[in-house]
């Protein structure tokens, strides 16, 4: 049966979504159990002070439901999740769902911007390298990519801050999404750069962008390498393929041959890699968030983990797993649109 076009892609995407539900459930249970076997007693941690008495700790434990057996706790936890309740953070005193909802846009905005910057840099670099393999340009791109991978993001982040904030003074104070004196726009998407635009506040938008650019660049530097390498490799295959030879044989213009024929085919694996890179960045950007005091979900989860605060960590892992599924779904749909062959069953 051959299904072409968007319909087939949507059916495939839906099926993929359904098939990922068991995996999500597994992640849920696994994280729950993992948190229980990690050392550290949250009741002790959240007691009023180091001198808290045994009864007080016992009381807190009861209050948190930690006196029950692990299977019982799991059942309670799952039923809570079923009702859309991710629990309450002991650290912030707020429901985890609310915390995540406040912080997720910050992380997403950062990651999206970083990925965009990475793609804008990596694809042309890869194409240029592929057009002249073995040339100076090719080696230059390789060196640049190697540097990007070798330098950890917190080092490149600090370097960027040193150069652009401390030395040149071009960048604003690298703390948070916006400096404290700017009035925030009404929240619509949670993405400050978009909210400012929607509110028509160009000055605020520019301020938000300036805050965003350094952390995004330091994240992007780290992922340019895999994206540029895969672009180069698949572009080389594409340029050497029979259909590019056909295109040349009828005298198509250089631009048409390189962009319409070679690049459009070469971009397909890049889409897949970009999806993986995005998911990795979302979870791994805790270092950048810490360096730039970015109020994102990753640093929130790290703080929670350090203080044995179960609920936020579990909520974070669930969120990441769901995002991973979603991103893969988007990649699938993009791929289905870009390549007519994949919708064949």
């Amino acid at each position: 049966m051959v299904k072409t076009g968007l319909g087939g892609t949507m059916v495939r995407a839906g099926r993929r979504l359904l098939s990922s539900l068991p995996a999500l459930f597994g992640v849920l249970v696994f994280t729950f159990l993992l948190m229980r076997v990690l050392p550290g007693d949250p009741a002790v941690f959240f007691a009023s002070g180091p001198n808290a008495g045994k009864e007080e700790i016992e009381q807190i434990r009861k209050q948190m439901g930690l006196d029950k057996s692990v299977p019982e706790q799991l059942v309670f936890y799952l039923s809570d999740i079923g009702h859309g309740n991710l629990g309450r953070s002991m650290m912030t005193g707020q429901p985890v769902l609310k915390d995540l909802r406040e912080r997720l846009p910050a992380s997403l905005e950062l990651t999206f911007t970083a990925l965009l910057i990475a793609l804008i840099a990596a694809v042309p670099l890869g194409v240029i390298a592929a057009l002249r393999p073995g040339s100076v340009v090719d080696h230059g791109v390789r060196l640049f990519c190697a540097l990007g991978v070798c330098v950890p993001t917190f080092v490149s982040g600090l370097l960027l801050i040193y150069v652009f904030y401390y030395l040149l003074g071009l960048a604003p104070d690298p703390t948070g999404r916006i400096d404290v004196f700017t009035s925030l726009p009404p929240q619509r998407t949670g993405f400050l750069s978009i909210d400012f635009l929607l509110a028509g506040d160009l000055e605020g938008w520019w301020a938000a962008c300036k805050q965003l650019i350094l952390p995004a660049v330091s994240m992007a530097l780290f992922v340019i390498a895999p994206l540029a390498r895969i672009t180069r490799a698949s572009m080389l295959v594409s340029l050497g393929s029979d259909f590019v030879r056909t295109a040349r044989s009828v005298g198509l213009s250089w631009r048409k041959v390189v962009v319409t024929y070679a690049l459009r085919n070469a971009i397909l694996p890049v889409i897949t890699i970009a999806g993986i890179v995005f998911s990795t960045m979302l979870g791994a950007n805790v270092l950048v968030e810490k360096v730039f005091s970015w109020p994102g979900v990753a640093s929130y989860a790290l703080d929670a983990l350090l203080s044995s605060d179960y609920a936020p960590v579990q909520g974070f892992v669930l969120l990441m797993a769901s995002l991973f599924v979603l991103v893969n779904l988007v990649v699938d749909i993009c791929y289905g649109i870009a390549d007519p062959r994949v919708s064949i069953e």
Binding site: S241, D242, R245, T246, R264, N265, L268, A338, D339, R341
Partner: peptide, 13 residues
């Protein structure tokens, strides 16, 4: 005109 006609055509156009 080439051998292996399927490979000689752009697969996504």
């Amino acid at each position: 005109i080439f051998q292996n006609p399927r490979a000689a055509l752009n697969p996504i156009r």
